[in-house]
Amino acid sequence: MGHGVGAVLISPRNGYTPFTARLCFDCTNNIAEYEACIMGLEAAIDLRIKILEVYRDSALVICQVKGEWETRHPKLIPYRAHIVKLMEYFDEITFHHIPREENQVADALATLSSMYKVRSHNEAPIIKVERIDEPVVCTSNDTSRSKNTRKTPRPVTRKP
């Protein structure tokens, strides 16, 4: 349904700040990877972060930005140049390649945004991911556990 990109800023105390966007233009996967990286860098700049470690699962983006690989594709050259300009906002910035399986949160955000049809700028549902350790309703035949033992009820959300 299109390209979605995701980035997650993780604080030194393991606080997660997710960002996601749907790319409403035709692009290659490599352009989408650059767009995701730039989105994360711009978010860090907006938050006035000065020391940043960037982890991406795109070897192409990481190796091109680090100068290990030459950027030859004419559509990718301006993307790399833009990242180099953004790097000036940081006192210290490093880039690291990680396997895709270690980048699950950003991947899930990208998948979500690629499937959600955005009609206007900044229009998106608020998404809260919770952990649920026990069922709302006991499904066992054990009558001694017939009532719900959860201490706080889960909020009920309905579509308008």
Results as ranks from 00 to 15, higher is better:
residue 4 G to N: 00
residue 5 V to P: 02
residue 6 G to K: 08
residue 8 V to G: 06
residue 9 L to R: 11
residue 13 R to T: 03
residue 14 N to P: 09
residue 14 N to R: 12
residue 15 G to L: 00
residue 20 T to D: 08
residue 21 A to E: 13
residue 22 R to F: 11
residue 22 R to L: 11
residue 24 C to A: 14
residue 26 D to F: 10
residue 28 T to Q: 02
residue 29 N to K: 05
residue 32 A to T: 00
residue 38 I to H: 01
residue 45 I to N: 04
residue 46 D to W: 10
residue 47 L to H: 13
residue 51 I to T: 08
residue 51 I to V: 09
residue 53 E to V: 13
residue 55 Y to R: 07
residue 55 Y to P: 06
residue 56 R to K: 10
residue 56 R to F: 02
residue 60 L to S: 12
residue 63 C to E: 01
residue 64 Q to N: 06
residue 67 G to Y: 00
residue 67 G to R: 01
residue 68 E to C: 05
residue 70 E to K: 11
residue 73 H to F: 07
residue 73 H to D: 11
residue 75 K to E: 07
residue 75 K to G: 05
residue 76 L to A: 09
residue 77 I to A: 03
residue 78 P to T: 00
residue 79 Y to G: 02
residue 79 Y to H: 10
residue 80 R to N: 05
residue 84 V to K: 06
residue 88 E to H: 13
residue 93 I to Q: 04
residue 99 P to S: 12
residue 99 P to C: 12
residue 103 N to Y: 05
residue 104 Q to V: 05
residue 105 V to F: 07
residue 106 A to E: 09
residue 110 A to R: 00
residue 111 T to V: 08
residue 112 L to V: 14
residue 117 K to R: 14
residue 117 K to Y: 08
residue 119 R to G: 12
residue 119 R to S: 15
residue 122 N to W: 14
residue 123 E to I: 04
residue 124 A to N: 04
residue 125 P to K: 09
residue 127 I to W: 10
residue 129 V to N: 04
residue 130 E to K: 13
residue 137 V to K: 10
residue 141 N to D: 15
residue 144 S to N: 13
residue 145 R to Y: 13
residue 148 N to K: 12
residue 148 N to S: 15
residue 148 N to E: 12
residue 148 N to F: 07
residue 149 T to C: 15
residue 150 R to D: 13
residue 151 K to V: 14
residue 152 T to L: 15
residue 153 P to A: 15
residue 154 R to C: 10
residue 155 P to Q: 07
residue 156 V to L: 12
residue 160 P to N: 11
residue 160 P to R: 11
